[in-house]
Design a protein around this nucleic acid. Structure first.
Length: 560
RNA sequence: AGGGGUAUCGCCAAGCGGUAAGGCAGUGGAUUCUGAUUCCACCACCCGGGGGUUCGAAUCCCUCUACCCCCGCCA
């Protein structure tokens, strides 16, 4: 068994596989590099980071950490037409929130002078040339997947001529698309990327970082290996679709005679079921106003997950458990939810909140009387202490905790059945009141004064059900938003499409103690899951709660 | 015969010639003042199909099949 395959971290989380570690171990054994292991996370600043990027971030930063090396954050901003400053700040904040610290913060655009020189060098060496075919002609002469392309008529022009044109390009003497610099490789290569790829283009666009200093910009395939080499990257980790680009990546560095060049290693992207991962589509949702913004809690952006209440630890544990491989995968949402729940269960306290209220009246409890009862802050965890809850004759309980005609193995409230009110007394349901439509609107019960929690009577006999409740006279109303699936699979289109209805607004009845929850704090609602007080929308005294994840339940109504 | 990848349980994922790890999901049970948590147990005679090599293969060879990526002056 490889040392790097199965590993239990300090957290007890089982790690998925990671073939990258095997490669690096070998490189280390071979003394391939005279510098320390260095990686980079190179986002293009054209959108917010999402769960897919988290995997890349964990791999890039995690690999550097594992080998005691460094990881740089680098904005891959070689195309000014598609990038904006707005995203730059969010990216740094998101990475910091995840808990990673970069070594250097770089802009690929800061390397434009060096890249320009490298291009000159290739031209001088006869490995690149200025091509004045139109974009359409270049496209048409490239050939197809099964047919070779044709050489550009400019392919063999003198290096000095190409060099002069390149300088003129830089000096603004050409318009967009009039001329470009192409690598001279092989128009008959079965790898389309090697058919004299364009490496520099004219673009009269203001760059968010370099302004109007340049009107020529390098193409990714030429820029990236140079960026990596400049920074001393040893392992350039990227996703699978760049496998075909690796020969070009290596060609650039070899042609430049770069010593100890970095190597590119590809891994499979993260895909989540029922989730929209495409940056393009997320942008559409944001711009069309279907969602509240890039940080809408229903989105799988880091900002959205943060606002939804997911923890960095939970997310990272999930990513580590998923592992690193080269097989396309589609991971179940339940896997992510498990790790969020798993992380939250020790970090949260429990509060009683009735999402769908049903009035419960204790007929034999004195009218006007209220007693304060201590309730555990966390079930089964005495170290977390207790807090006081008011209890009186009229309460709210959950609608689903009562069934007029009980299903099999249903052991909550139904006529004639006795249950425990969490932290309070045993009650037995005697009768119900219905409205004109036949809906049960009120439960009449009697309680047993000898069964008060904390007294011997509370354990004298067993009841199978324990339900949560809230004092009707003193409870507070809180807005609650429950989020469903982030997206639904549309069979007609074959795509995951955002479900704008995946949000339910409720006004729930909550115990008064919930007032003391601060925005951003997470709590567990009894049997309803984990929630977070929305740090963005909540105002003092009126917290809004977003659902993070629901609790698993081993009882299903079908089991009748 | 374009090229490059990938195929191991419903979903991820170990395995690298010695006779199928683990996690999620699921199932059964114990504990429980949340049907949560915790805790046990079960959950691939088989590794995309078919051949072959071998005492022995998911692991080597041949072949077939399926899926993903590549014809941007995007990244």
């Amino acid at each position: 068994m490889s040392e790097n395959t199965v590993k239990t971290a300090d957290t007890g989380i089982t790690m998925g596989g990671n073939f990258i570690h095997d490669i690096i171990d070998q490189d280390l054994a071979d003394h391939k590099y005279s510098r320390e292991i260095t990686t980079r996370f190179p986002p293009e600043p054209n959108g917010y980071l999402h769960i897919g990027h988290v995997k890349a971030i964990c791999i890039d930063f995690g690999t550097a950490m594992k080998y005691g090396g460094k990881c740089n954050l680098r904005y891959d901003d070689t195309n000014p037409a598609k990038e904006e400053e707005e995203y730059v700040g969010s990216i740094e904040g998101d990475i910091r929130w995840l808990g990673f610290q970069w070594n250097q913060l770089n802009y690929a655009s800061d390397y434009f002078p060096k890249m320009y020189e490298c291009c000159e060098e290739l031209i001088r060496k006869g490995k690149a040339y200025a091509c004045q075919m139109t974009p359409d002609d270049i496209k048409n002469s490239r050939g197809t997947l099964t047919e070779p392309g044709k050489n550009s008529p400019y392919r063999d022009r003198p290096a000095e001529e190409s060099l002069q044109i390149f300088h003129d390009m830089r000096d603004g003497k050409y318009g967009d698309g009039e001329v470009c610099i192409r690598a001279k490789i092989d128009m008959a290569s079965p790898n389309m990327n090697m058919r004299d790829p364009v490496i520099y283009r004219v673009l009269h666009v203001t760059h968010h970082h370099t302004g109007d200093r340049w009107c020529v910009y390098p193409i990714y395939d030429f820029a990236h290996p140079i960026e990596d080499a400049i920074e001393g990257i040893t392992h350039s980790l990227c996703s699978l679709e760049f496998e075909d680009h690796r020969p070009l990546y290596n060609w650039v560095l070899e042609s430049l005679d770069w010593p100890e060049p970095p190597q590119q290693i590809e891994f499979a992207k993260l895909n989540l079921s029922n989730t929209i991962m495409s940056k393009r589509y997320i942008r559409k949702l944001v711009e069309s106003g279907v969602v509240e913004g890039w940080d809408d809690p229903r989105l799988c952006t880091i900002a959205g997950m943060r606002r939804r209440g997911y923890t960095p630890e939970g997310i990272k544990n999930f990513v580590m458990a998923v592992g690193v491989s080269k097989a396309n995968s589609n991971i179940d949402m339940s896997q992510l939810e498990f790790f969020i729940r798993d992380d939250l269960k020790d970090k949260t306290e429990s509060r009683m909140v009735v999402l769908h209220p049903l009035k419960l009246i204790i007929d034999n409890y004195p009218e006007g009387q209220t007693e304060w009862l201590p309730v555990e802050n966390k079930a089964g965890d005495e170290s977390k202490g207790t807090h006081e809850m008011p209890f009186s004759r009229e309460l709210w309980v959950e609608q689903e905790d009562f069934m007029e005609v009980p299903a099999k193995k249903y052991f909550r409230l139904f006529p004639g059945n006795e249950v425990r009110l969490k932290g309070a007394y045993f009650v037995t349901c005697n009768s119900v009141v219905k409205d004109e439509n036949g809906n049960v609107v009120e439960l009449h019960c009697t309680y047993d004064p000898d069964t008060k929690s904390g007294t011997p009577g509370a354990d004298a006999r067993k009841v199978k059900g324990t339900i949560h409740w809230v004092d009707a006279g003193s409870c507070i109303d809180i807005p609650v938003r429950e989020y469903g699936y982030l997206a639904q699979y549309n069979e007609e289109t074959g795509y995951n499409e955002f479900d704008p209805n995946s949000k339910t607004d409720l006004t729930a009845k909550a115990e008064p103690f919930l007032k003391e929850i601060a925005p951003g704090e997470r709590v567990q609602f009894f049997r309803n899951g984990y929630y977070i007080a929305d740090a963005v929308l909540s105002k003092p005294g009126a917290p809004v709660f977003n659902q993070i994840v629901g609790l698993k339940s081993s009882w299903k109504p079908e089991a009748k």
